[in-house]
Each structure stands twice: as structure tokens, then as C-alpha cells.
């Protein structure tokens, strides 16, 4: 059999907010190419078969984080999911789980975006250093403390993998907590206290039961589960230290 004649079935989630009250699945036959990813197949569909098909994508190289979808039930970047992994098919393509659906595979990200800005994911200084004093210096060892957590591309695959986020509307979720931790661990940042109130609440780290799938599905190896566990250890240390009648040397916050 030559690859020219081979096809694969895509079962695509369809939902139109103006006309549909229920989502449905539509099956398409798509040409199979060994070097095609699921996103290529969707783009072929949109160009050649059905222009109404809606989904987000941009870079096609695992950097922009916009083409995340459920592929056969698991959250994947579709630019990174080769058709050959799922042969002989069919391949089921759905919007990321845990989010409201705007249309087809387009999810509503408002909740994620609000929570992300809430934790102030940027460097906070009590007092800005004057430009004349140069950059904030950082050693390679200090950089290594948070570098892994800084690789997040906000693709929200970790949210789709998280059963806690699915059920708990207030839960901040993996990526937001990992990014909060990324800035808390940054030696140049002084915003720890401003973020603590939010991330040390029940709706912050404490709703997490360490399922660990957020880290398993992350295309950038950010390991949000580890970030959350480390924040739990810090919050617990702080809780018991604050019960002491004195502040141990070097422990003041």
C-alpha cells in the first residue's frame, strides 16, 4: 500500500453557539501522510472540505501554545501529535476538557486568564532599582531554581488533565500555580507576600491532590505538580514557624 492512497478517519467535535444546543461529532476521511500532525489534518479539512471548522493555532512548532486539543481523550498540542501515533485510527479530536466551549475546538479561556493575572506573574520590586545601577544580577544557580517553571507557554493542557480543576471552579490550577512559584523563586522578585494570600489559600495549592497528570501532559516539562508540592512545603513550614513565639534567625518573612 502506498501512502498516497491511505486515509484516516477524524472524528471531530462540532459545536456552533448560534445554532446547536448539543455538541455532535462529525467524521471526515483525511489523507494520511507520515509526516503530518493532527493540526495538518485539521488545516487540510478546513481548506478542502469544511471552512466552518474552528480551532486555534499559530506557530506549528510547539512554541505558541494555542493548538491544544484532546486527541483520543488525552490533552495534546496538535502540532506535536503525529497521525502515525494513532494509526489505523479513527482519531477523535475534541476541545480541551475542563473549559467552556466557544465553538468547535475553541475553548473559553477567560477563567484561566483572570487567575493568571491574579497571581501577578511578573517581577515585583519593593523599590525599583535605578537604571544607572544596571541590571538585577542573578547567578546560574539562582536561575536554575526557577528556570524549569518559566518554560510555560500557557497552552492549558495541564488544566485539561486536572480532575480537580474540572470540579472546583475556584481552583487556580497547575499552570497558574507553577508561574506563581516561578516568580516566588526568582531571586530578583520581592512579591512573595502579595502572591501568598492567593496561592496559600484552599483554592490555591491546597485543592491539589497531586494527581500528577498536569506534569505528564506538559509539552514543555514544566512539572507544575512539583511546583505545587514545593509551595505546599513552604506554606507548611511558614504555618508552623508562625506558631512559634519567636522568629528563628533567617526565617523572617
Amino acid at each position: 500500500m502506498t501512502t498516497e492512497t491511505m486515509t484516516v478517519t477524524l472524528e471531530v467535535f462540532r459545536y456552533h453557539p448560534d445554532t446547536d444546543s448539543e455538541p455532535s461529532y462529525q467524521s471526515y476521511e483525511v489523507p494520511y501522510r507520515e509526516e503530518w500532525v493532527v493540526l495538518d489534518a485539521l488545516n487540510w479539512l478546513k481548506d478542502e472540505v469544511d471552512g466552518t471548522l474552528s480551532y486555534r493555532w499559530s506557530c506549528r512548532m510547539g512554541v505558541c501554545g494555542s493548538c491544544g486539543m484532546m486527541v483520543n481523550g488525552y490533552p495534546r498540542l496538535t502540532c506535536n501529535a503525529f497521525l502515525r501515533e494513532f494509526m489505523p485510527g479513527p482519531i477523535r479530536v475534541e476541545p480541551l476538557r475542563g473549559f467552556p466551549v466557544e465553538r468547535d475546538m475553541v475553548t473559553v479561556l477567560d477563567d484561566f486568564m483572570e487567575k493568571l493575572t491574579d497571581v501577578k506573574p511578573y517581577i515585583i520590586r519593593e523599590e525599583e532599582q535605578s537604571l544607572d545601577d544596571g541590571e538585577y544580577l542573578q547567578s546560574p544557580s539562582q536561575l536554575a531554581d526557577f528556570k524549569q517553571f518559566s518554560m510555560c507557554i500557557n497552552c492549558t493542557l495541564c488544566y485539561a488533565a486536572c480532575p480537580v480543576y474540572e470540579h472546583e471552579d475556584e481552583f487556580l490550577g497547575p499552570a497558574v500555580l507553577a508561574l506563581a512559584q516561578r516568580y516566588n523563586l526568582d531571586s530578583r522578585d520581592q512579591g512573595n507576600e502579595q502572591r501568598q494570600q492567593l496561592i496559600w489559600a484552599d483554592e490555591g495549592i491546597w485543592d491539589c491532590t497531586f494527581v500528577g497528570e498536569c506534569s505528564a501532559v506538559c509539552p514543555k516539562d514544566v512539572d507544575p505538580a512539583a511546583a505545587i508540592q514545593q509551595a505546599k512545603v513552604e506554606a507548611t513550614n511558614n504555618f508552623f514557624i508562625s506558631l512559634l513565639p519567636f522568629t528563628p534567625p533567617g526565617m523572617g518573612r
Partner: peptide, 9 residues
Amino acid sequence: MPGPLPRAK
């Protein structure tokens, strides 16, 4: 108009 599909749990 039904609007966005609420998140499934």
C-alpha cells in the same frame, strides 16, 4: 442563541 457550551464535569 445557546451561547458557549458550559464546562463538562
